[in-house]
Amino acid sequence: MTTTLTPPEARAGKGAEPPAASTRRRDLLRRLGPFGFLSPTLVLLIILMVTPIVMVIGYSLMDRVITAPESNFVGFENYGEVLTDPVFMVAVRNTVFFAGASVIAHFVIGMGFALMLNSPMLGHRTKAIFRTVYILPWLFTIAIVAVLWRMLLSPNGIVNYLTETFGLSSGTVEWLSDPSLALPAVTFINIWSGYPFFMVSLLAGLQGISKDLYEAALIDRAGPVKQFFHVTIPQLKPIIISMALLDFIWTTQQFALIWMTTGGGPINRTEMLSTYTYKLAFATYDFSVASAAAVIVLVLSMILAYLYVRHQKARD
């Protein structure tokens, strides 16, 4: 917070005004102004977010924190342990697949549904009904999403019943326990539960696109496909990028869904960074190493966030 008192010489343009005392005070106020608006946010985030994160960073440099009476500074030893653990690499690979596939599918499905729901052919009431149906998966706490899908996908569940009845599969498919199906299955569940957020944002974005652009495209004899790629997508690009970034960050820390459906199994086929960290912390009580893993995730996402902010800056 001390930075507020010593802002660097900014706003050079204002220097043209006479340096009267009152102006200087107003200038100071103007510089402090933004921090006045930001202060509730900063107070809250510093006390309740930055503090625990700093503590976690501290833990990551010590050994046997929390669970043992004495802990010592060990430098980056815990980081070494995490980075050389083959399971960590498996977790990174699975997480990237899980989050990447989820984000792409959220986008594709969200976009498809948004386009359909945005059609001018539909009346307001019809739209309202369908919109409500299409956001349903968003309304349920993740624990319920997990148990619901466990039920649906269980060997004697409704999904197997339907696929067998319609002859799509012979015999029982072990959706969640077959080592080769588990990761796609949990990814599918996450796609189901997460697409409405994308859909709603895209739907909103679609309504913000000026009709003139489509009319201009029509004059150029652009068909629906061409319109989509030359008008809709470029216009929505800022939303798509923001949503994709946020969705990616949120999906990488999806814990409850995976834990309650597969527990990271079978074997380690659905092990994610989140389940890996959880097991370190609460199954082996290795909070130091768990903290190191968390810090690695934090650094990776800070890089992502930095690229994003820079991209925004460049666009402005």
Partner: peptide
């Protein structure tokens, strides 16, 4: 933006 990325489970105890 990035504070959202710390796994909540590791923040739990502190």
């Amino acid at each position: 933006i990035s504070v959202q990325a710390v796994p909540p489970i590791t923040l739990l105890i502190p």
